[in-house]
Design a protein around this nucleic acid. Structure first.
Lengths: 201, 201, 201, 201
DNA sequence: AATGCTCCAGCTGAGC
DNA sequence: GCTCAGCTGGAGCATT
């Protein structure tokens, strides 16, 4: 019988190689844990820090996929009236842009449909709006959507709670246009295999 | 020997109760899976839908904890220059508000430090800003922070890529004030026990 | 616009169906947890109980797959000298049986190779065997394997620590026969899809 | 303001240390995966191999805990008649030994209670026993337990299917003695913190 | 009681 | 089309 080719020896060798690697891995895990403990001792929030690390290690396509999911989820939340105060992010807005139908006409509709919310919007203090104000903003969002306004045409400035309400109205409307499921509500590209991209990074 | 008090019978009974419950659970899991498949078949993005469901089932305090972590993570990302285009959310801004130092003086600094970006900001088209523009906005954010401006005083409107850059500058600066770790960067309240709240819901 | 066919309404409906099911699931999970707590309070070991439940809920083919993996792992452990006292299980022995080469010859080899360990084996007390005894048993296992003895021909009775050692020797030998990896060391049948079986049960 | 003590810089440093460690970890994970693939290509069963590695990396106390849980689970399975052919392992037998009540009396009970199963047991062929044989063995196990016989006094040899049945009878009986839950059915020692032991190993 | 860690199972995406 | 591995999320357990 040969000495190195036998199954028993091969098994032993495999086992030991794996164990060695696993031990190294454990050591690294312990190191990582320690760094987090150190961060915590310094006053950082480890959960947030973990999130930051995760983001920093994402490949480009992973980040894109995450953003897309996030954007779609925001559309869904908006259409269900669950935005609770946080307006749509930029990525989500961008997502809804592709069909910019006849912009010149929109401007007209804009002026008519939502004449001058800007005047009210000049007071961005929180908490000064009644439920009725919010409700009105939601209704205006629906109307504006029906009138062909785009999602970026939200008349309320950032920080204004009515901004989220308008988004909600717009999204609900855009999801109820008789289409089965609107294009912006669907996942688009296939998340490509980016193993190579990972190495390249 | 008694019939019902014996350990062997008790064990059997426990086993069977658990199995019955587990089977019911499996059935429900299958049902849930089916609904997701149905959603997918209709064109919805299941991953986003899962997220929506998760949100909808959160208790108040869970939602608060999530939002807080999110806000802190955004601060960290901003201070590391990793916002890549997405400006700070409202919740994050709110988080940084508590210390509103001498507002009247700030207004002065405001006028001086960032005179009139609004004029430029009136063109919210994406992609028309050079890297230098972005860099300048970041630097201005740092200066404005040093001058006592608050995070909500970001002079760039929503949708303007320089808005995120200004945020980054402001956050980096606010994290470098010589304090060990600024108050806004820390986790605040203990997430209270909301078991009762869960039942109430 | 129609009332039921719109995407927004469909989304709401899906969300609510899922939430309802998830709530039921949570309730069941809570019930299950309670039963385990009750078991624990009665003095049962919950970890062992969980294992029992797992076994009881296995389908036939799942059980078969588990047993096969278990048997192979025991072969590996034996060949690496890691059985530490626990001899091979019946399933593992059975696994090594298929090639029963010329039984009549084996019997001869049996008589010659391991004459009368039975006489010693009549004292099944633990701890009365030296390392040398163990080592001898391992060597005998290797020889017996070479001599064509089958794994069930282990001359030591259950409970005798030399039994495990003989197993180890036999397995090491059977894994070193010059074959790449012996048949008994490989996974055999494809684990068939038993979805139907699951329903039938 | 100092350059190194600022929060923003500290955060960056923490992030980068973690990322570096995580990258090393990923590399090791990839290596481990490769070894498993190699093993698979050679014909080894990777699932079994994983189990072997797990065993090999266990600390002493972890192994003890695993064995204890395993032994208790076997007792439970036996008492529920779920051993299906696989008799109790040695560890489980050992577990039930502590109360060795008056061994000389037991020998007598032995002779009376289960006179000469050995004569039948000399034919260890599988599959030659009827359900009735199995049932009888189970009943005898119960009787023998009642008569004070110990678990190691199982009269059937290893490989005899009645051996498992006798075990089942004995375990069922020992769990039904009127005691709440017998001592052997409970978890014994607290699994001590063996962090130090891990390092020592 | 609350939190952090570890383990496990279910789900998702790739690959033959 | 089905299997397979990776992975993420959740549950249990130990700890403080």
């Amino acid at each position: 019988m040969s000495s190195t080719s036998e199954a028993s020896g091969a098994l032993r060798s495999l086992k030991e190689r794996i164990i060695r690697l696993e031990e190294d891995k454990r050591a690294l895990q312990a190191d990582i844990k320690e760094v987090y403990l150190e961060a915590k001792a310094s006053g950082f929030d480890t959960k947030a820090l973990r999130l930051v690390v995760k983001r920093a290690m994402e490949t480009t396509s992973e980040a894109a996929a995450r953003r897309e999911t996030q954007a779609i989820a925001e559309l869904y939340l908006a259409s269900l009236g669950m935005l609770d105060g946080t307006p749509l992010g930029d990525a989500t807005r961008e997502r809804m842009m592709p069909p910019p139908p006849e912009p010149e006409k929109n401007d007209e509709g804009d002026d008519g449909g939502a004449p001058a919310p800007d005047s009210e919007a000049e007071e961005p203090q929180r908490g000064t709006f009644s439920d009725q104000d919010i409700s009105e903003a939601r209704g205006r969002g629906e109307q504006d959507c029906a009138a062909g306004k785009r999602i970026i045409d939200n008349p309320y400035v950032a920080g204004d709670p009515r901004r989220a309400a308008w988004d909600e109205g717009h999204c609900r409307r855009s999801g109820s246009d008789g289409m089965e499921v609107p294009e912006a509500w669907r996942r688009r590209q296939k998340p490509k295999a980016d193993t190579a991209a990972k190495e390249a990074a």
